[in-house]
């Protein structure tokens, strides 16, 4: 759901860019205090994994595809602030090197996929798994709702821009992402399980203390 240039009005992308820039300044201040050196190799490798996985569009219906987003995966492993940093790096490279997502739309894309999606993931996961719920279904729902929330935000930005009526865009974009989100919901626990089982990575910050603002 990378928004290209031309889809958003100047006030809409300007506002989104302002919110994202302010949030990232806050995240940077916080990460200076909490991020640890031994996290860096896994952060880099998982960001690269998410970038590569985002290239692999899978068909969801005839004439439509979706791809893994990765916001939930990194949010549950590293916490929402670090997830925002990782997703922002990916979005910057996609926009400036690959023309995937616009430069003016960058703030909106960061807001949807690097801010809203990780925070929704952590919030939903803690709500469901934190009260003795089972982890698998909690991860599935966290991932599905994160994709839906990002799609909703994307639809609202398009509607507020006057590009398309909200009555038309919201059901359409939420409908497609309800399908794409199932992929996210199935892949996220799979990757987390692989990382835990193979002992490649340890720790789940988002699940334990990442939700504290």
């Amino acid at each position: 759901m990378h928004i290209p240039d031309g889809f958003l009005s100047v006030p809409a992308w300007g506002a989104a860019a302002g919110v994202s820039a302010g949030y990232l300044a806050l995240a940077t201040r916080r990460l200076r205090q909490t991020m640890e050196e031994r996290e860096i190799p896994l952060m880099g490798l998982l960001a690269a994994f998410v970038f590569a996985a985002q290239m692999l569009n899978f068909p969801v219906a005839p004439g439509a595809s979706g791809h893994f987003l990765g916001s939930t995966l990194v949010a549950l492993l590293f916490g929402p602030w670090q997830a925002s940093l990782m997703m922002t790096v990916i979005l910057l490279i996609q926009a400036f090197i690959f023309l995937d997502g616009g430069v003016t739309a960058l703030g909106a894309n960061i807001l949807n996929m690097a801010i809203i999606a990780p925070w929704v993931s952590v919030f939903v996961f803690r709500l469901l798994a934190g009260r003795g719920g089972r982890r698998g279904p909690a991860v599935f729902l966290a991932a599905w709702l994160a994709v839906m929330a990002a799609a909703l935000a994307c639809g609202l930005e398009l509607a507020l821009s006057g590009t398309v009526a909200w009555q038309a865009v919201l059901p359409a974009i939420l409908g497609w992402h309800a399908l794409i989100g199932v992929g996210e919901g199935l892949l996220t626990p799979l990757v987390m399980g692989y990382l835990a089982r193979t002992g490649v990575a340890v720790g789940q910050k988002g699940a334990e203390e990442g939700g504290k603002a």
């Binding site: 889809f7 692999l56 023309l99 038309a168």
Partner: peptide, 29 residues
């Protein structure tokens, strides 16, 4: 990977605003 339009691209085609997409940048790849 599937080359079919992704969720947003499909919505843009169906609702007739796909042609609004422009590129403000000459990206290398």
């Amino acid at each position: 990977a599937s080359s079919a339009p992704d969720g947003l691209e499909r919505v843009a085609e169906d609702l007739g605003f796909a042609e609004r997409a422009v590129a403000h940048l000459a990206a290398p790849l």
